[in-house]
Computed example of a mutant assay.
Amino acid sequence: MSFSRGDSAHDFVARCFYFWLPVVDGLLLLFYGITGERGQLVAPWFDQEWTRWIGVACMVVALIWVICAQATMGTAWRMGVDTRTRTELITTGPFALSRNPIYLGIRATILSQLLVVGTWPVMVIWAMSELLVQIQVRFEEEHMFRLHAQRYADYCSRVRRWI
């Protein structure tokens, strides 16, 4: 993990995205799991069994996608911006389709969770996750430009941020 208790925007966003959001999400899912209480749904179609099955299927695909992307990164894998270690630029596997395949998988997982649970608190978690991931990705892309310069610029011209 590459974030500290510092007061920078990078550290704050990283703490929110990598620590606080998963803690709140985990506690909410634990509550749902223990009580069986879902609360008020965002929309009536979230109460359909087919919606939940689509969510489960998407979660499975997203998990496999994230595992493949992390395996492709090998020793270059980091959480957050690590300015102390020079890592190689990974452009193969899922990285040939998306510059941020791990974050894409995380986005798909949280959206899938919304399809499965469908409540307002999960909608808020999804919205916060979307905001934080957009900021975090931009911090990491700035770092990659500093680290790999023209090679990263060329990669960006070939591969989209998401898909």
Rank of each mutant, 00 (worst) to 15 (best):
I106G: 07
G26L: 04
I90W: 02
Y18D: 09
Y152T: 07
M128R: 03
A9C: 05
R15K: 12
I64Y: 08
Q136A: 14
P94I: 03
A127P: 01
T35W: 04
W45S: 12
W50M: 15
G118F: 04
D7G: 06
P22K: 10
I102H: 07
D25S: 14
E141A: 09
Q113L: 14
A9E: 11
R84P: 00
L29I: 05
F31W: 14
A43V: 01
M144D: 02
T109H: 00
I54H: 04
R5D: 04
W77I: 05
T72V: 05
A9G: 05
V24C: 09
Q150E: 15
L114H: 02
M1T: 09
I102V: 15
T72Y: 04
R138W: 02
T119S: 14
R161H: 02
T91A: 15
R5E: 04
Q113D: 07
F139K: 04
L104T: 13
G33H: 12
E37M: 10
L21I: 05
A76M: 02
H143L: 11
A14N: 07
Y152R: 10
R160I: 02
L29T: 01
A76E: 10
A96F: 00
L28F: 07
W45H: 08
I135T: 11
L132W: 00
T35N: 13
R151I: 02
V159D: 08
I102M: 14
A108M: 15
R146N: 13
D154W: 01
T87E: 08
T91K: 15
V133D: 04
Y32S: 08
L111E: 01
V159W: 04
E130G: 01
R78W: 01
W20K: 06
F46K: 11
I135N: 07
V133C: 06
A127C: 11
W120H: 06
R146M: 11
W50C: 07
Q70P: 00
W50Y: 08
T109F: 00
F19T: 13
I110M: 14
W53D: 10
S4W: 02
A62M: 09
S2G: 15
C68V: 06
V24W: 01
C156R: 15
T92A: 12
M73Y: 01
G36T: 11
R107Q: 11
V137S: 14
V133H: 03
C58D: 11
F19P: 01
T119E: 10
R38N: 03
G39D: 12
L104G: 12
V159Q: 13
Y155F: 14
S112E: 09
F17W: 02
A153W: 00
G33T: 09
S2E: 13
T51M: 15
C16S: 13
Q113M: 13
I135F: 01
G36F: 03
T109W: 02
R138P: 00
R107K: 10
A71C: 02
L131D: 08
V122H: 12
V137E: 14
Y155G: 12
F95P: 07
A108Y: 03
D11P: 03
Q70C: 10
L28N: 06
Q48V: 00
I163L: 15
E141P: 02
I90D: 03
A43I: 03
G39M: 12
R158K: 14
F31T: 03
A96C: 08
E37Y: 09
L27F: 05
